[in-house]
């Protein structure tokens, strides 16, 4: 695709996951995950419910602890060292299915909170930064409202802007549109596409196959905690290799 050509992928490694395993008690959620993400890559993860997509994404910024294997983000090994965890979290932004905005803070305060307290940015600078990103997600006029006063689509865009305010080099999205009404999905996807065009490294768990075709340069299919298949979107959708992928795609695209 023409657009994709614009988005450069460098050779630099952003995330490198090797032989990673995770258990919930005795339940083996993630099995031998090997994944390398180049800087500037946009990866879409799909798979049936319960396949471990969210868990994988949440392991990358240590919201969940993995038990075996290694995760390295921007050259920092995700270990039990708090300093490393803090470093990785400050470089990785995350958007949740349910936005998780802070309801007691205004939009502007939601955005400036982390820069002020984590990056120790002076308040004024943090606010300028926040306004910059609010303009980017096209809702600067809502700065002084509270999350409860915004529509779902607007809230999710605020959540994206909140992550961006920490100026992350990698963004993780966990089903960012699945709690939204259809008419609001587009505004969020547009924001994400814009982000992709700017060369942000993105890892996105989503059921939006149109988005995957348009933006992703790799689609990963997970099932039962394993990466079953990964390929460029064109190939992935038109010529799936594994029978499990075929079944999944026929179910999701079939009707």
């Amino acid at each position: 695709m023409a657009e994709q050509a614009k988005m450069q992928v460098s050779d630099e490694v952003a995330i490198s996951i090797q032989n990673m395993n995770k258990w919930y008690g005795t339940f083996h959620v993630l099995r031998d995950i090997d994944l390398t993400v180049q800087r500037g890559e946009r990866i879409v993860i799909c798979g049936p419910s319960g396949s471990g997509k969210s868990t994988l994404i949440r392991c990358i910024n240590a919201l969940e602890e993995h038990q075996k294997g290694s995760i390295e983000v921007d050259g920092t090994l995700l270990s039990s060292d708090l300093k490393n965890i803090d470093k990785i979290r400050s470089e990785v932004g995350m958007c949740f299915q349910h936005f998780n905005l802070f309801p007691h803070l205004s939009i502007l305060e939601n955005l400036t909170l982390a820069p002020i307290w984590v990056r120790k940015t002076p308040k004024k600078e943090a606010e300028e930064l926040a306004m910059h990103y609010l303009e980017k997600v096209k809702i600067p006029d809502q700065a002084n409202k509270y999350p409860g006063q915004l529509s779902g689509g607007q809230q999710q865009r605020v959540a994206i802007a909140r992550s961006l305010c920490m100026q992350p080099r990698i963004m993780l999205f966990d089903e960012p549109t699945s709690a939204l009404d259809p008419e609001m999905i587009k505004e969020v996807l547009d924001t994400m596409i814009e982000l992709a065009e700017e060369g942000m490294t993105m890892l996105c768990d989503t059921h939006e196959m149109g988005f995957a075709r348009q933006v992703a340069n790799r689609v990963i299919f997970m099932d039962e905690g394993q990466i079953v298949e990964q390929n460029e979107p064109e190939e992935f959708f038109n010529n799936p290799q594994s029978p499990r992928t075929q079944l999944f795609l026929s179910q999701i695209l079939g009707h």
Binding site: E65, Q67, K68, G69, S70, S80, D81, L82, I85
Partner: peptide, 20 residues
């Protein structure tokens, strides 16, 4: 429950507070 491949390097006292 604990990572099986701990970070390389010897134990440092600061790890008492900085290591989960």
């Amino acid at each position: 429950t604990i990572m099986t491949d701990p970070p390389k390097g010897a134990f440092r006292l600061s790890m008492l507070l900085n290591d989960t």
